[in-house]
Computed example of a mutant assay.
Amino acid sequence: MYSNGTISYQEPRKYTFDRAQSVDDETFSFTTINVVYMVDSIAYDTFLVSNGVGDNAYGIERVDPVGTIERFNYLTSLLIWSDQYANMINGTDGTMWHPNATKDERIYAFIPDICRSIYLTFNETRRNIADVDLYRYTLPLTIFSNSSENRGFCMNGTTFNNIYELQCLPDGLFTQTPCQHFGGSLSIPFPIIASNPHFLDADPIVLDAVEGMHPNDTIHRSFADIEPTTG
């Protein structure tokens, strides 16, 4: 913990097998790329977050900044996207939010796996099994859209006649090439494109190009359930 009201931590990860969500049992074998073997060294992300303790400029105790990421890997913003907006580090790590949530606000979170901040908007009030009312915030339809808001996430490129332009993917697709690398000092980018499950919210040209996709807003849209008083 630091004197300016922030703490730093590294996020451990653990994976367990879930048979109910799997097509086969643990004895099933498949072949894939060994990403860990391809990477020369594994780096753990470091977060510096606000603990929400202290007063604002008016001397009133503040709670809104609790859990907000101040720095990620010692940087206040990313350096990989093509504009300042896309490189912003907004919100928390997605495991906590500030108290007194409202229905008209955007809930921001920074997702290291995709190297960008996202936001969720209020969808509905739900009651959990403990009879507690929760606000459900969901990922909006436009979060991965080919729009001016997402212009900074397009890839840099040049046309056949060497005219500079940004190369943007269709709605629903999000490039991971600037984000995912292997090879240590060579830093070779992975040609990876991300999307919602089953290409939810994707352009029909994307959805029609792959067989077996059945996007369902109820089960495929990302969400966060937040107890509004405590966060």
Score class of each variant (00 low, 15 high):
21 Q>P: 04
220 H>G: 02
190 F>M: 09
29 S>H: 10
12 P>S: 08
35 V>H: 05
145 S>V: 06
130 A>F: 15
51 N>F: 13
191 P>K: 07
22 S>H: 10
124 E>G: 03
145 S>R: 08
31 T>V: 13
122 F>N: 07
98 H>N: 09
37 Y>W: 14
73 N>D: 06
166 L>P: 00
42 I>Q: 09
106 R>E: 12
96 M>C: 10
63 V>N: 14
24 D>S: 15
53 V>Y: 12
219 I>M: 11
8 S>M: 07
168 C>K: 01
70 E>K: 12
180 Q>W: 12
116 R>A: 01
163 I>P: 10
45 D>V: 05
149 E>I: 12
185 S>V: 04
128 N>A: 10
229 T>K: 14
175 T>V: 05
123 N>P: 00
101 A>P: 07
197 P>S: 04
3 S>E: 13
176 Q>N: 08
74 Y>S: 12
197 P>V: 01
18 D>W: 03
84 Q>F: 03
19 R>E: 09
172 G>S: 07
179 C>M: 00
226 I>S: 07
5 G>P: 15
198 H>F: 03
199 F>Y: 14
3 S>A: 15
86 A>G: 02
231 G>N: 08
88 M>F: 06
199 F>M: 10
196 N>F: 11
121 T>C: 05
82 S>H: 15
211 E>K: 06
79 L>I: 11
34 N>F: 04
213 M>G: 01
81 W>N: 05
33 I>D: 07
42 I>N: 04
172 G>L: 04
35 V>T: 13
5 G>D: 08
109 A>H: 00
52 G>W: 06
81 W>V: 02
205 I>P: 04
28 F>V: 09
164 Y>Q: 11
121 T>K: 06
114 I>C: 03
7 I>N: 11
91 G>D: 02
200 L>I: 01
136 R>N: 07
115 C>G: 06
144 F>C: 08
138 T>W: 05
90 N>S: 10
22 S>A: 13
116 R>I: 00
42 I>D: 01
92 T>N: 08
15 Y>Q: 08
222 S>N: 12
106 R>L: 09
59 G>E: 10
49 V>E: 09
155 M>D: 02
181 H>P: 00
206 V>N: 00
107 I>N: 02
51 N>C: 09
191 P>C: 01
29 S>R: 12
7 I>K: 09
149 E>C: 03
177 T>P: 00
88 M>V: 07
143 I>K: 05
111 I>T: 01
90 N>C: 11
158 T>W: 12
134 L>H: 08
88 M>Q: 14
117 S>V: 03
38 M>V: 08
157 G>Q: 06
43 A>K: 13
42 I>G: 07
137 Y>N: 01
69 I>D: 02
168 C>V: 00
79 L>Q: 11
161 N>A: 10
186 L>P: 05
226 I>K: 05
57 A>Y: 12
160 F>A: 14
125 T>E: 11
11 E>K: 11
160 F>E: 15
208 D>T: 12
22 S>G: 13
31 T>F: 08
141 L>V: 14
22 S>I: 05
120 L>F: 15
118 I>A: 01
132 V>P: 03
108 Y>A: 00
92 T>C: 10
87 N>A: 10
125 T>Y: 01
140 P>E: 03
32 T>W: 09
26 E>D: 14
221 R>C: 09
151 R>C: 04
74 Y>C: 06
158 T>V: 12
46 T>M: 11
77 S>Q: 04
207 L>V: 15
212 G>M: 04
217 D>R: 13
81 W>G: 00
184 G>L: 04
